[in-house]
Amino acid sequence: MNRTLALVLGAIIVIAAALLPLWIGPFYTRVAQLFFFSAGMAIAWNILGGFSGYWSFGHTVFIGMGAFSAAHIVHRLGPLGDGPLSMIVPILLAGLICGLFAAILAYPILRLRGIYFAIAMLGVSQVVGELVNNVSWFQGGIGVFLQTPVPSGTTPEDFFYYIFGGLLLLCFLISIAVRNSRFGYALLSIREDEDTAMMLGVATERYKIMAFVLSATLVGIMGSVYGYSVGYFTTYTVFRLDFSLNLIVFCLIGGIGTLFGPIIGTAVMLFITQVLLSRFLDIHLLITGAMVVAIILLMPGGIIGALRSRKRQANQVEPVEAEARA
């Protein structure tokens, strides 16, 4: 796809998305809002897990930490600004706190490779969740309020629809910038073979930490906005294993390590679970689980991977023949 076409298409999609709440009802606005939130986080997870190959099984720690940070900042410092603008400082600080936490965590944890890193992150999310729940200063057990300064004339659905939409766009643009930069190539080489990457002059430790901090910051920001959007939450609202796992499933379904994979995967899974299966709530998880297994078995590269290999089959001669000619 050439660049101009991509830009035009992108602009059309953004404008269409901006006008959408005018003619879909509050229910679908909420579904769309959930989609933006989830896809944004899947993209943030993908920067670390998809590009550098470090799968985190505990990214919910940054959702929870972001949400609780914002709530405590508002409670302890009082409102910072008027109306919707009062959200800016708590949200940015929440992102900063998550980024700092990731930077500290990176030193011991990013030395672990593969499944050990994944499990260590799972452990970290459980530990932090328990601390927030049981140390009374955090008020995770009884819950915290985070008032939503919705401007007059808009509904909360529309308001958060636009905020999450903007954040999704931001995450997507960051992801594109990363993928096409030196930083992105460093991450890909780390995913493919970390020792070889080092041998080629890639400062692997530094780039892994950068990816981890970037991913954590973005998820922290979205976590804090999520906190605002629910208004009141306890530990169990935001430190949730299913959040962590869903992000991975969304990326897997769409195509891990690709730019569009996380978005497509999230759209497909949310359409299935929130729209198609909304009438079968009792067997909803059963069907979701079965579909995940089926998709993984039939399309190991996710939807993007399946499309690519089909395109490749159509366009290219057999690899062996091409090598023989070359």
């Binding site: 030196r182 190539y185 460093a186 890909l188 080489s189 995913r191 493919e192 073979d193 020792d195 070889t196 990457a197 080629l200 002059g201 890639v202 400062a203 390590g257």
Partner: peptide, 19 residues
């Protein structure tokens, strides 16, 4: 020890970008 999912050019580009 190639980077299997990357193209030949991208493999070489990693060397050229860093190094």
């Amino acid at each position: 020890k190639p980077f299997p999912a990357l193209t030949v050019r991208e493999n070489v580009r990693v060397g050229a970008m860093f190094g």
